[in-house]
Design a protein around this nucleic acid. Structure first.
Lengths: 153, 153
DNA sequence: TATATTTGCATCGTGCACGATTTAATTGTT
DNA sequence: AACAATTAAATCGTGCACGATGCAAATATA
């Protein structure tokens, strides 16, 4: 099981490269479903949290998606231009901006509803079963806990 | 085990979101090691394949990293400016550009050698053991086979 | 109450990703 | 040989990511 350092530098022995690649490939796999709605994958993630939680501040969205405002600000402004949501400064705390879906943004939920199931099916095969997926998800969630704590300090 | 479509839209039930997040978090985790060498994660990946395979064409690098030339061209030009590699048109086929490491590029292998081990250790814990990582890698590699075939047609 | 610190968001610059298009070299077909 | 089709890179435009910085509002502290 022990590998030399040189062997660990082989691409096939890397653990991070498959994660990086699959992440990009999955974003690509989402594309045909999302572009019907004119959405990118990160925009779709914003809709997911807003469908689930209703009005949220930039901060709260960022906390859930693990994204900072320097990524979210322009992204959400683009979504506002598409009339999917409205931004408004809080009156209690003028620093906060709350984001709320428009009717159009809410209505997209119906179009999006069948997407996760379709995508999951495209990831299942004789070789990859649902139990494998659940195991994988479990490990990834633990990593998120470990890594997101580290990147804050 | 069956979920309604609405339940599947919850962020916590998504399988793709953890992959997307972990991918970004891992890139961040690499940063302290790579920035000593002035490298980004994708640049480090290019070095990995060149350390392993020597001189390669743009196409061949793209095949191994699953990246197209529209991503690789500027990336590799930046690496050429850093004196890590040299680009040269093939004489047999003037359309091809072959990429070869410089002495500097080769020498970075020693600096990079301990990095994968360090990173792996930061991903292991009482909750995530090496066997979990190997299982995860196995599933991801199968997905790469499935998804990369689809995205080509 | 004045001042320092923190907080929430926005902006800037750089570097990926990637679909679409362009250009030039090679190969295939009459 | 002439022309069409294919191939390998490069370029362009858009949208993330993210470190660094700026700014104004809120909070803490002297």
């Amino acid at each position: 099981m022990n590998m030399t350092e040189k062997e660990q530098l082989k691409l096939s022995n890397q653990i991070c490269f498959p994660i990086y690649s699959v992440s990009r490939l999955i974003t690509k796999a989402y594309k045909p479903y999302l572009e019907k709605m004119g959405l990118t994958y990160p925009q779709y993630l914003v809709l997911l949290v807003l469908w689930e939680h209703g009005k949220l501040s930039m901060n709260q969205i960022g906390d859930r998606l693990l994204l900072n405002t320097n990524t979210l600000s322009p992204l959400i402004k683009r979504m506002e231009k598409m009339n999917l949501l409205k931004r408004a400064r809080s009156e209690q705390d003028e620093r906060s901006v709350f984001v709320e879906l428009t009717e159009k943004g809410i209505s997209y939920k119906n179009d999006a509803a069948p997407v996760p199931e379709k995508l999951l099916k495209s990831l299942l095969s004789e070789e990859v079963e649902l139990t494998d997926v659940l195991l994988l998800k479990d490990t990834l969630k633990k990593w998120i806990a470990i890594l997101s704590e580290k990147s804050e300090g």
